[in-house]
Amino acid sequence: MSELEAAPPGASTTLAVDVPPPDGPPLRAGELDDEGLLSVLGDDGSLDPATDPGLGDALLLRAYREIKRLRLLDARMLLLQRQGRVGFYGACTGQEATPIATALALEPSDWIFPALRESVMMLVRGFPLRTYVAQVFGNAGDLLKGRQMPSHMSGRQVNQVSWSSCIGPQLPQAVGAAWAAKLRRDRTVVAAFMGDGATSEPDFHNAMNFAAVFKVPCVLICQNNHWAISVPTSRQTASTTIAVKGRAYGVPSARVDGNDVLAVYRAVSEAVARARAGGGPSFIEALTYRVGAHSSSDDPSRYRSQEEVDRWTKRDPLLRLRRHLAARGLVDDAADAALEEELNAEIAAAVADVEAMAPPARETLFDDVYAELPWHLREQRAELLRCPKAPAHGGGG
Results as ranks from 00 to 15, higher is better:
8 P>A: 08
14 T>L: 14
18 D>K: 04
26 P>R: 12
34 D>S: 14
37 L>A: 00
41 L>M: 12
45 G>D: 03
47 L>S: 04
49 P>G: 15
52 D>F: 09
57 D>L: 01
67 I>P: 03
68 K>W: 07
78 L>A: 09
81 Q>I: 01
83 Q>E: 13
84 G>K: 01
86 V>I: 14
87 G>C: 05
87 G>F: 02
94 G>S: 03
100 I>M: 04
107 E>N: 12
108 P>A: 05
109 S>T: 11
110 D>T: 01
113 F>D: 10
115 A>T: 13
117 R>D: 10
117 R>E: 05
117 R>T: 10
125 R>M: 14
129 L>C: 10
132 Y>W: 14
134 A>G: 10
137 F>E: 01
143 L>Y: 09
143 L>K: 09
146 G>N: 04
151 S>I: 07
152 H>G: 14
155 G>Q: 09
156 R>M: 08
159 N>E: 04
160 Q>I: 15
160 Q>G: 08
162 S>M: 11
173 Q>N: 09
173 Q>S: 04
176 G>Y: 02
176 G>I: 05
177 A>W: 02
178 A>V: 05
183 L>V: 15
183 L>H: 10
186 D>T: 02
189 V>A: 01
191 A>L: 08
198 A>L: 03
212 A>G: 14
212 A>H: 02
220 L>V: 06
223 Q>K: 12
226 H>Y: 03
242 I>R: 10
244 V>D: 12
250 G>V: 05
252 P>D: 09
259 N>Q: 13
263 A>W: 10
263 A>I: 04
265 Y>D: 02
275 A>Y: 03
278 G>D: 00
289 Y>E: 01
295 S>K: 05
296 S>H: 07
297 S>M: 12
303 Y>V: 00
304 R>Y: 08
310 D>G: 11
311 R>L: 10
314 K>P: 01
324 H>K: 04
324 H>N: 06
331 V>E: 15
333 D>M: 06
342 E>Q: 12
349 A>S: 12
356 A>S: 11
361 A>D: 04
362 R>Q: 03
363 E>C: 07
367 D>Q: 15
370 Y>R: 12
371 A>Q: 13
373 L>K: 14
382 A>G: 07
383 E>D: 14
390 A>P: 09
393 H>M: 04
396 G>T: 04
